[in-house]
Structure formats: structure tokens, C-alpha cells
């Protein structure tokens, strides 16, 4: 069950309001259950059990460990645990959006909605660039493992700074190159053409999209009312 890219974007935006306004754990569990169902029935790879497990761990800490902990420790930890826990729905939505969005579909939907190319192109490039960034990071990590760049530096802080610098220098250089080559390739393929582009991958929203949107809006309204 794949939803329209606009539905995923809306879900992600609304999930931010749930995270900040909702304080009812049962509503949050309901949201998480709903998003898990969406993930399970979406494209392969959308469902990440690791995220759910981490969420369960946070819930466990808050509801099982906190009551038996000394009050001061609980006070110190609860801010951290509760805040992170409430942002899990946002993470779930971002995973849904990222795993189910093809750049061409997103550009098609945005173009049909009349969004300017000045917005669509950078967003499309950003999404397309994420896997490349990961690949480049892994290459650099390998290179670093073969070479102890921090040998001879005793101060642990300076070691960290050096390591970070060694990761970032090649990453920036290759990002600049890639951005340059990518935009050159796009320009030679007519991206600047002022005519209305064809949206081959455009599909109108279906019933399932509307059902999900209505549910998401209902939850948002509930959170808003409770917050007031």
C-alpha cells in the first residue's frame, strides 16, 4: 500500500505537532501503531523493527524503571527520555517519506501543484544525494581505518577534532564536485526549459490517501484541543 508523496509529507509535518503538543501516552501508542501498520504495508524496507525496539526501550525506562528510581535521578533523566520518546512518530514518518518517495514522483506532484522549480529542484537533489552521502561516508571510514590519522596526538579533544576534520574535508570536496557535475548534467538535459514539463510519474491521490489524511488531521485537532 503506497501512498501519495503529498500524504507522506503532510504526515511528517503533522507528526511534528503531535510530538510537541500531545502528552497522552495512549494517543502516542495509537499513533505509533498506526504508523507501524503503514510501514508494514508500504514498500519493502519501510518497516524498521530497530526503531520500534528503541521506542519500546524508552517506554520501558519511563514506565518501569523511573517509578523505582530515586527521585533525583528520575528528574535528571526524565527530560531527556520523555522528549526523545515523543519524537519517535516524527522519525517513523520520515522513514515512510524517505523510503517511499521516488524523486520523479515528488517532482511530478510538486510541479502539478504549481510549486516553483526553484523549490522542487533543490529538494529533489537533496533526496537524491542522501544515498551518495552515505556511500561517501563509508569510503572515508574505510580509508580512516587503514590509516591512524591521530597517531602522535595525545589530547583526546584534539584527536576528536582531527578525526572530524579528516571526515569532513574529503566529504566537502566530493560534495562540491558532485553538486557541480550533477547540475551540469541536469542543465545539458534541458532542466532550464521554460515550458511546462511532462509529469510522467504523476498519480492523483486515492481513497487511502484521504483516509490517512483525515485520521491524521483528527489526531492533530485532538492534540491541539488537549493542549489548549
Amino acid at each position: 500500500m503506497k501512498l501519495d508523496v503529498r500524504t507522506y509529507i503532510l504526515l511528517t509535518l503533522l507528526s511534528a505537532t503531535w510530538a510537541t503538543m500531545n502528552s497522552n501516552i495512549y494517543v502516542e501508542l495509537l499513533i505509533m501503531a498506526g504508523l507501524t501498520v503503514l510501514q508494514v504495508f508500504s514498500k519493502k524496507g519501510s518497516f524498521m523493527p530497530g526503531i520500534l525496539l528503541t521506542y519500546a526501550l524508552f517506554c520501558g525506562v519511563q514506565f518501569v524503571l523511573f517509578p523505582v528510581m530515586p527521585e533525583t535521578v528520575e528528574m535528571i533523566l526524565s527530560m531527556f527520555v520523555v522528549n526523545i520518546r515523543s519524537f519517535f512518530p516524527v522519525v517513523m514518518c520520515i522513514v515512510l517519506l524517505y523510503k517511499n518517495t521516488r524523486v520523479s514522483e515528488m517532482t511530478a506532484s510538486f510541479t502539478r501543484m504549481g510549486v516553483s522549480r526553484k523549490v522542487t529542484v533543490p529538494v529533489a537533489v537533496a533526496i537524491r544525494y542522501i544515498p551518495t552521502l552515505k556511500e561517501e561516508w563509508l569510503h572515508i571510514r574505510d580509508a580512516m581505518r587503514m590509516r591512524s590519522v591521530t597517531r602522535g596526538i595525545k589530547n583526546p579533544f584534539l584527536r576528536l577534532v582531527k578525526k572530524l576534520e579528516c571526515y569532513l574535508v574529503p566529504l566537502f570536496v566530493s560534495s562540491l564536485h558532485s553538486a557541480d557535475e550533477l547540475s551540469t548534467a541536469a542543465v545539458t538535459r534541458g532542466i532550464e526549459n521554460p515550458c511546462k514539463p511532462t509529469c510522467r510519474n504523476y498519480k492523483p491521490m486515492g481513497v487511502k490517501d484521504y483516509i490517512v489524511i483525515v485520521m491524521a488531521v483528527m489526531i492533530t485537532v485532538y492534540c491541539f484541543i488537549m493542549h489548549m
Partner: peptide, 8 residues
């Protein structure tokens, strides 16, 4: 690697 714009 750096001349394709779409993901499919």
C-alpha cells in the same frame, strides 16, 4: 555516479 538526477 554524478550524472543521474532521478532515482529510477
Amino acid at each position: 555516479k554524478s550524472q543521474f538526477f532521478n532515482t529510477d
